[in-house]
């Protein structure tokens, strides 16, 4: 399927927006302005953008502790995101959620769950509701490699398969659950092969190639929308930073990844790879990149200003929102 030029530029711009938002957030965290911890998705942008490029606004997405990229890719407002990182009343969750628990129900972003594997059953239930309600809405559940060892992964996919639910399970396999490598914790080479046990399609794609991700996700989303059932899509990717920003200080100099490994993944940076391809095809020029960068920088700075200027919640607001 040929993708038009505007769509290609949109993919590129969104990946870059995620990158710059994450970089700025990490800097502000280190500067002490952002109180909540951050699990950065730098390096994994192509997965979020490639998958969400296939979704409508009314389609749903569930996410993880590493949620910023997914929310931006789904169309989230970075002002509200940044304000939530600052824990301001003007943030997505009024300061209650912070980095790990963002949600935007107006665009089908049903929430980031910080407990590994916790989002999968919930996403499965959203897909069940869509089926019961006769909607042609699709749900995507994002999760990491670590989650595929949780019971919820297996139970959810089994349910979705026997009930033929309109859902796509997207594993962002960045090869590490905190410090534990998948080579130790997962006995199969490709997580996607686990789909076999539940009788659904499983596909592994290069998570650094946004077009490959988009194409594979497109097939799975279409299958779900047509009522043909769930799929498992594994995207091989890499997080450039630690499990969380500033992890290295807590590990006291010990590392669980080699510099060679990190550099080999950075050499296949998703944004750089795609940018080069677009330049070769004449879709992107250096001037265009500069103008996209300038535009993103302005947007991110606007978000920071919005977050800084937002009011703190009043202490008593802690007691609100428990029940309807």
């Amino acid at each position: 399927m040929a993708i038009d030029k505007d769509k290609l530029l949109e993919l590129y711009t969104k990946m870059l927006l995620i990158r710059r938002f994450e970089e700025r957030s990490a800097d502000l965290l280190m500067a002490g302005e952002i109180p909540s911890g951050i699990h950065s998705s730098i390096g994994q942008e192509a997965v979020a953008v490639g998958v969400c490029a296939n979704l409508r606004t009314d389609d749903c997405v569930s996410s993880t502790h590493r949620a910023h990229g997914h929310l931006i890719a789904k169309g989230g407002d970075i002002k509200l995101m940044m304000a939530e990182l600052y824990c301001k009343r003007t943030g997505y969750c009024k300061g209650k959620g912070g980095s790990m628990h963002m949600a935007d129900y107006s665009i089908g972003f049903i929430g980031a769950c910080a407990l590994v594997g916790g989002g999968l059953p919930v996403a499965t239930g959203v897909a069940l509701a869509a089926k019961l309600q006769g909607k042609d809405q699709v749900t995507v559940a994002f999760f990491g490699d670590g989650a595929t060892n949780e019971g919820t992964f297996h139970e959810s996919i089994n349910l979705a398969s026997i009930w033929n639910l309109p859902i796509v399970y997207v594993c962002e396999n960045n090869m590490y659950a905190v410090t534990t490598p998948t080579s130790y914790s997962i006995p199969v080479k490709d997580v996607a092969t686990r789909a076999v046990a539940y009788g659904i399609p499983g596909e592994t794609v290069d998570g650094q190639d946004v077009l490959a991700v988009s194409a594979a996700a497109g097939t799975a989303v279409e299958r779900a929308r047509q009522g043909a059932g769930p799929s498992l899509l594994e995207c091989k990717t890499y997080r450039y930073l630690g499990h969380f920003v500033s992890e290295e200080f807590l590990l006291g100099g010990k590392n669980y990844r080699t510099d060679d490994e990190i550099n080999s993944w950075k050499a296949r940076d998703a944004i750089a790879l795609f940018g080069t391809k677009l330049m070769e095809n004449g879709v992107l020029t250096k001037d265009k990149v500069a103008s996209i960068e300038a535009d993103i920088k302005a947007k991110v700075e606007d978000a920071v200003t919005f977050a800084r200027q937002g009011p703190q919640p009043a202490p008593e607001e802690a007691l609100e929102d428990l029940f309807v």
Binding site: P35, S36, C87, K88, C93, G95, K96, G97, G98, S99, M100, H101, Q312, P313, A314, P315, E316, E317, A318, L319, L322
Partner: peptide
Amino acid sequence: RHHVPMPCSPVLERFV
């Protein structure tokens, strides 16, 4: 603790 889940905001957390 006040009978709510723990909020993220330092202002709210101090209150809870």
